[in-house]
């Protein structure tokens, strides 16, 4: 059978479920929206040394990254729901390879996270964000790859979770630290050096930086480096998640 068919149906299924659950659209944008609204109000007159752009432009790409981080991880972890509701068994006894299943699931989750991220960008534009520059077309590509990375991480996490109750732990001890350590809200240079070192290990840091660069031209790292890290971590986490996924028993 065509493995591509399997990837496609699983992707399509995620999309259908997404379009059917309106509450998901608002649900996952709500918190990032308040971050955006209150931080850009509160810090609108703040100037960070060495940062040449205004705060709304600084934070908006970071908030888009926040949306794909949260939505992506959540989509990935929701494999646990499929396990609890039994649907995972239907897929796992089909002839589709485990790799195709994980890939289809990751692409589906990444697509919904990506769409949510774009909606967030539109919302940012309503409050004054003006993306510009010659590299704008890279923005959607980088946003999608970031979504794919974090959906894969979510899937990897789901393979070690017994039930959905662990999700709160994932949010508090994984998703939030990743977010705060990414330089989405303030420049990394403001952090003490050991925290900055931690941030350098965080894949989201490079996503935030590259997304900011593609929409405003301002970057902390060399954009080539950030883009390389984005591609590499996407590839690695995709592999990791399908590897872990292929080893799980589904009872």
């Amino acid at each position: 059978m065509g493995e591509l068919d399997a990837v496609y149906v699983l992707w399509l299924r995620d999309l259908k479920r997404y379009l059917r659950a309106k509450s998901r659209v608002f649900g996952s944008i709500g918190m990032p929206f308040f971050f955006l609204a209150f931080f850009s109000l509160g810090f609108r007159r703040v100037e960070f040394p060495g940062v040449e752009i205004d705060y709304v432009s600084f934070i908006s790409p970071g908030i888009a990254a926040m949306v794909v981080l949260f939505t992506g991880v959540f989509s990935g972890v929701s494999v646990v729901w499929d396990r609890q509701f039994g649907f995972l068994r239907e897929i796992m006894v089909s002839p589709a390879s485990r790799f195709s299943i994980a890939l289809g699931r990751a692409l589906g989750g990444a697509t919904t996270a990506f769409v949510q991220g774009l909606i967030m960008v539109a919302v940012s534009m309503l409050i004054g964000f003006r993306p510009a520059g010659n590299n704008l077309l890279l923005f959607p590509v980088l946003l999608f790859l970031t979504a794919l990375t974090f959906t894969s991480i979510g899937i990897a996490i789901s393979t070690v979770m017994r039930d959905i109750h662990g999700f709160q732990i994932v949010v508090n001890f994984f998703v939030f630290p990743i977010f705060f350590l990414s330089g989405a809200l303030f420049p990394l240079s403001e952090l003490p050096s050991f925290v900055e070192a931690l941030a350098m290990l965080n894949p989201l840091t490079y996503s935030v930086d590259a997304l900011r660069w593609s929409t405003t031209g301002y970057a902390f790292f060399n954009p080539i480096l950030s883009i390389a890290v984005i591609f590499l971590s996407c590839f690695l986490f995709l592999l990791l998640s399908s590897f872990l996924f292929s080893r799980t028993e589904v009872e």
Binding site: M1, D5, L12, R13, R17, F85, L88, P95
Partner: peptide
């Protein structure tokens, strides 16, 4: 299976169609 493995968010047709595609 003894316990349900349907996707309850999808329709009857969609569940069957998805299955058919998975099996080529």
């Amino acid at each position: 299976f003894q316990e349900s493995t349907l996707d309850i968010e999808l329709t009857v047709f969609e569940n069957l169609d998805l299955h058919g595609r998975l099996y080529g």
